[in-house]
Design a binder for these strands. Structure first.
Lengths: 342, 342
DNA sequence: CTGAAAGCGCTTACAG
DNA sequence: CTGAAAGCGCTTACAG
């Protein structure tokens, strides 16, 4: 070992292992890749050499040769604050990680711009860095992501905004409209006479669907469907929306909120204004994320199985990567979780 | 375009661009890499071809040829809950992202096991997937990370537990002992007669340093230094530690908590037990993360510039990657932020 | 300024 | 079961 470069150890190559074991590179490659066509003694010799040299295959060379990166991207078109601020994402990530655990794939998180992806993101996704992608929190207007599945295997978290634009259309979702209707109906069954909603951004399909579910239930009850204010899925957004709602309808006595985090913000405004929850105003959230139970008052909410959804996205992508043409749309169930806010 | 494979578009190569532009692959490569030795007309022709074909260089081939991946890993040896639960990490990530913005490097997040890294993580880091790594929240006992810098350029968030084991030793930190002493002194100056601490895990250097700072200040004041209970840097951990502290010393009237998140948990226990904050018990946190201002009572805390620290780690790694032998240890300042809890 | 050629470290038919 | 050889898509001296 020369000391010429004060630098770092140079990684051993397949070639070195072959020399050490006294076999050809092909054979070493077979061993590394678990081919069965290797005699026991050669197998042992190669493994010894691998251990001795501490050999780890070079990913770039491997990828170039077999056109697989063994990496998948989790793309979330949200800024850091939104991503880290909403426990929903943590659960999705946990689910995906879990779904990938037994595979050889690693997960690379890419936070993208909420509006349209940066040049860097595009080059990353299209430059052969990953074998597939999971896109969560997709906003309409992101034409890039919409058409990405023509180039790369992609699974979306949430049904697409414009299904017609997709080449392939794989997603995991819940029936958001149904869930929202259920949450709203819960408020109506409580006898609430003026039920509003704090909706999500109207460029997200899940938000649109939840608003529609609220609307459906409210309309069926004979109440007016005018009380909708949009928030941005943050706590502050929920608070702002609540303020506007109170201004527009001081007499409201129930509100369905499209996410737990927004519900938390809404509740703090209600209490600041002297309204008791659920006494004066009953609040139902959506997600049943950890935000539902971390605030001052435990949220009654519509549960969606975020972790399982993440795991399912991973499984679906893995199946696509294996070339299987399995189920491509998976809609999971929601359910009411009754706690203290309604 | 044949319809034989129902598959996906195959990406155009350098070769294709060269053919399209009527030049050699070398020339296209030069254009792609921004070499100046290209005549204007050839440059234009190549760029046109690139646009027309929508060419994006294949990363694997590129990496293999020039031994650069243009990716760096952010390694956080914490489970998903800890990572997503503590806003401190969000701020670090924001800082790093910001520090990398103007570079061509992408950031790949790797959550590792808190104890020792998985085979997958090791292979990832050593298999040529990244050009360098930033390791945050390093625990002692992780010999792998400790010696990783012999193989890969690494910057640590926080000074090392065992500096002697490191080959290279690059880190960004604050003076944790100093900061903790300052926070504790603040409590003492308030006239608190029995000041405890909720410390972090004792396998983390930052936690050890903060405990030492508390101890130094408390000892100097003539109070006993027996009131230390360790938490795990989570809200629940802070709450549990507070319960134990109250049991051991019902008369305590001040507590320095090694993280804002733990402080939040501690305060909720105090209030549950009927102790007013800061009236009965004054609480000082550490971090000044968003956790300091999101609870029922705004935290008085020791501020550390998390975002700037992240940015600095990125800059330091970038410098290492450029081969610069710059400053390798950067200690940033802390300061008191006085709010309502003390 | 431009091109031919070698090489990066693997995998994978193809022979044997 | 094993090896020689071609090839994956780039970069980079080396000539010219």
């Amino acid at each position: 070992m020369t000391l010429e470069t004060p630098g770092r150890r140079v990684a051993p190559t397949l070639e070195a292992v072959a020399a050490e074991a006294g076999v050809s590179r092909s054979t070493v490659s077979r061993v590394v890749n678990g081919s069965s066509h290797v005699s026991p003694d050669v197998l042992a010799a190669v493994n010894t050499a691998i251990d001795r040299l501490n050999y780890i295959p070079n990913r770039a060379a491997r990828s170039l040769a077999n056109r697989q990166t063994m990496a998948i991207a989790l793309v979330v078109p949200e800024d850091t604050n939104r991503f880290f601020g909403d426990p929903f994402f943590a659960e999705i990530v946990q689910g995906i990680t879990q779904g990938l655990e037994d595979s050889d794939y690693v997960l690379n998180l890419q936070l993208a711009s909420p509006s349209s992806p940066s040049e860097k993101t595009i080059r990353y996704l299209l430059g052969g860095n990953v074998d597939g992608a999971i896109v969560v929190s997709h906003h309409s207007g992101d034409d890039f992501f919409t058409t990405l599945d023509a180039t790369l295997p992609v699974v979306f978290g949430g049904r697409p905004y414009r299904p017609d634009l997709h080449r392939n259309n794989n997603f995991v979702d819940v029936d958001n409209a149904e869930g929202a209707a259920m949450g709203t109906q819960y408020l109506l069954d409580l006898g609430r006479k003026r039920v509003a909603t704090i909706a999500g951004p109207d460029n997200m399909q899940a938000a649109i669907d939840r608003t529609e579910g609220w609307q459906r239930a409210v309309r069926a009850s004979g109440q007016p469907t005018d009380l909708v204010v949009h928030g941005d899925f943050t706590m502050a957004g929920g608070a702002a929306a609540m303020r506007e709602l109170l201004e527009r309808a001081p007499d409201l006595d129930g509100v369905f909120v499209a996410s737990d985090l927004m519900a938390t913000g809404a509740i703090s405004v209600l209490r600041d204004r002297g309204r008791s929850v659920p006494g004066d105003v009953a609040v139902v959230g959506f997600d049943d994320s950890s935000a539902a139970t971390s605030g001052e008052i435990q949220l009654t909410t519509v549960h969606q199985p975020s972790r399982e959804m993440g795991a399912e996205m991973a499984r679906m992508l893995l199946a696509l990567l294996r070339g299987e043409t399995t189920e491509r749309e998976r809609v999971m169930p929601t359910r009411m979780v009754v706690r203290d806010s309604a």
